[in-house]
Amino acid sequence: MSAASSDPRTGQLSLTGQIPVTRTGQIPVTGQIAVVPPRPTTAQIAIANDPARRPDVLLRRRMPPGHQISAWWMIGAFVGVSAATIALMNFFPA
């Protein structure tokens, strides 16, 4: 049987002597028992269908049925985006 030594720099085992091979050319693994860990038990998880928690919606708030936002929010958003665009365009020469 071959003697094995460990390289202190890498910790890798190096075999000295003749390596045993089978008729097919494979190196047999001896002294090691393959332990297969048990597979975890899995089951389906019931997911509550909550429309306020959909992954494609960010910062959604629940409002009472029939609630509408004020038109002033949209007017303010338009004015804010317009002002920001004009302010940024002032950085570029004409």
Rank of each mutant, 00 (worst) to 15 (best):
M1W: 03
A3D: 12
A4M: 09
S5Q: 12
S6L: 13
S6V: 15
D7N: 15
T10Y: 09
T10H: 03
T10Q: 07
G11R: 04
G11C: 08
L13G: 13
S14G: 08
S14W: 11
L15G: 02
V21R: 13
T22A: 10
T22L: 10
G25T: 10
I27D: 01
I27S: 02
P28T: 08
P28G: 02
V29I: 09
T30K: 04
T30R: 05
T30D: 03
G31V: 05
G31F: 02
Q32P: 00
I33G: 00
V35K: 05
V35G: 01
V36N: 08
P37D: 04
P38M: 03
P40Y: 03
T42A: 07
T42L: 13
T42F: 01
T42H: 01
Q44G: 14
Q44C: 06
Q44N: 13
I45F: 10
I45H: 10
A46G: 13
I47G: 09
A48W: 05
A48F: 14
D50Y: 02
P51V: 06
A52Q: 14
A52L: 15
A52S: 15
R53I: 02
R53P: 00
R54S: 15
R54M: 12
R54D: 13
R54T: 15
P55N: 11
D56R: 11
D56P: 00
V57Q: 08
V57F: 14
L58A: 14
L59F: 13
L59C: 06
L59G: 14
R60Y: 08
R60L: 13
R60D: 10
R61T: 09
R61M: 06
R62Y: 02
P64V: 06
P64G: 09
P65E: 00
P65F: 00
G66T: 00
G66C: 00
H67I: 00
I69P: 00
S70F: 01
S70M: 02
S70R: 06
A71Y: 02
W72M: 05
W73F: 14
M74E: 04
M74P: 00
I75T: 07
I75G: 02
I75Q: 11
G76C: 04
A77L: 10
A77V: 01
F78Q: 12
V79T: 14
G80R: 01
G80W: 08
V81Y: 09
S82V: 06
S82L: 15
A83D: 02
A83H: 03
A84N: 07
T85L: 15
I86D: 01
A87M: 11
L88S: 09
L88Q: 12
M89A: 14
N90S: 08
N90L: 11
N90T: 06
F92G: 01
F92E: 04
F92N: 06
F92D: 03
